[in-house]
Nucleic acid binder design. Structure first.
Lengths: 249, 249
DNA sequence: TGCATTCACATTGTTAACAATCTGAATATC
DNA sequence: GATATTCAGATTGTTAACAATGTGAATGCA
């Protein structure tokens, strides 16, 4: 069973609900070999072990994973679909490197889809949502002031986002939002590197949660839109100053 | 050059602007062999020559296109990414068949993304938008009352949608909306089979265009949301009565 | 008859060799 | 000295054979 398919009502606490891997569970025996390989390469890309723009040689990976180039090619196609790898015809694969324009575009779409999630959650409230948001924002607030927690903070907001999407009850929407968030995650970390930005983000999460508790959907939508917009802008700004995200510990 | 990359300002009239293929241009020499093959298979699926749920044998296609199974597998992966083909591990590929739930989910996402397009268009109006919408809705109105024009009507709304997305100036958003619309196109045709439904749809397009011309964004958003919702509901209803869309001329 | 089992066949998954293409350094030309 | 050309090496694209897996009909049993 893929981590994304874990039914929401199986979890009651934040600690349990976030216990799924960023990418695919590579030990899942139902996954095909290319899927498992794609998961492992994906984790490397998301973890910064492979820098954006870096070339990916088929033979090199084939040797490493002890398979022929066929399954590697399938794995690269899977990663291309996820947006983590870019395949250039007859010139091989590279780790996807987003331009500021592309990052801005993705952030905009992500914001639009999350707005849809929020409106759905407001329409059909899920009993687990509020406790989950409370526990999540608490965790975010703790991470906000910790030094060097940009990566973990960004991953926590990612997990929180996915959990919200799951509770909204539209699987395709959840999958699309997951995919978009994974594509932007490396860059989001850049925008959340400073304590000030994290504190600002955590406060907006907090206020949005309060708005939901108070039943003020429009306010929650507004706060969420603002948070994603600000995070996106900051990520774009950081990307413009530094050339690429990767290579962070 | 793929059809989606045609710059908008190259066209001034509706007739020119819609002159792109539904799927990929298979004669484009810059496309790889698998991409060309994917385009041809995709056209068959969209055209109803291959029914939802139909099995797709690799060898059969390999013989037909005079290549080995390798490029066919790549083509099927491409079509899987587009959502037109579903690949079941070790059990082969089938033409994607949407359940009513999945169709509803896709329609909902499509509506949310198009709303984003509308808001962007309202923020930064494009000089070509209004003439394009006027010409498009005119064409829709003509097609609404024609008999057996469900397919052509649906394709026209698809093209109109893509043109709007293009003018909104977010390429990724345009690509996602294109992909989603292609996935739902076969089913949209079902929902637009009756003259009454087409007339209703055309009127909502018309009113939304008028709202845009009057600068009433909220009204346009509301009308658009309603149109997509109604079309989606009708497609779902038709899908529930008839089992599958394909096999239409 | 209804259901589980077996087994041959068809199909997908993988491999390794070969063909086509790209890259970049060395060379040639202006 | 700067730009164009050539060519060898590396890399991707394709093929056909082989291995692993799934399917469904025929068989056996209750």
């Amino acid at each position: 069973m893929k981590p994304n398919d874990i039914p929401a009502d199986q979890f009651t606490a934040w600690e349990g609900a976030v216990a799924f891997r960023l990418f695919a569970d590579q030990t899942d025996p139902t996954l095909t070999v290319p899927e498992q390989i794609a998961g492992r390469i994906g984790d490397r890309i998301l973890g910064g072990q492979m820098a954006p723009g870096e070339r990916i040689g088929e033979q090199e990976l084939a040797d490493e994973f002890a398979v022929s180039r066929g399954p590697i090619r399938e794995a690269l196609r899977i990663l291309e679909r996820e947006g983590l790898v870019t395949i250039l015809a007859r010139r091989g694969a590279v780790v996807t490197e987003l331009s500021t324009t592309e990052l801005r575009e993705l952030m905009e779409i992500r914001g639009g889809l999350f707005e849809l999630v929020v409106r759905k959650l407001a329409d059909q409230p899920h009993p687990e949502l509020l406790p989950l948001l409370r526990a999540g924002t608490e965790r975010l607030q703790a991470l906000a002031t910790e030094t060097d927690a940009g990566g973990e903070y960004a991953e926590t907001t990612y997990r929180l986002l996915i959990l919200c999407a799951r509770l909204a009850g539209n699987q395709r929407l959840q999958r699309m939002l997951t995919g978009l968030s994974l594509q932007t995650l490396r860059y989001s970390k850049l925008g959340l590197a400073s304590v000030a930005r994290r504190e600002r983000s955590a406060r907006l999460w907090q206020e949005a949660t309060d708005a939901l508790a108070a039943g003020d959907v429009d306010r929650m939508v507004r706060l969420t839109r603002q948070r994603i917009e600000e995070s996106g802008d900051e990520a774009v700004r950081q990307l413009q100053s530094r050339p690429a995200p990767g290579s962070a510990p």
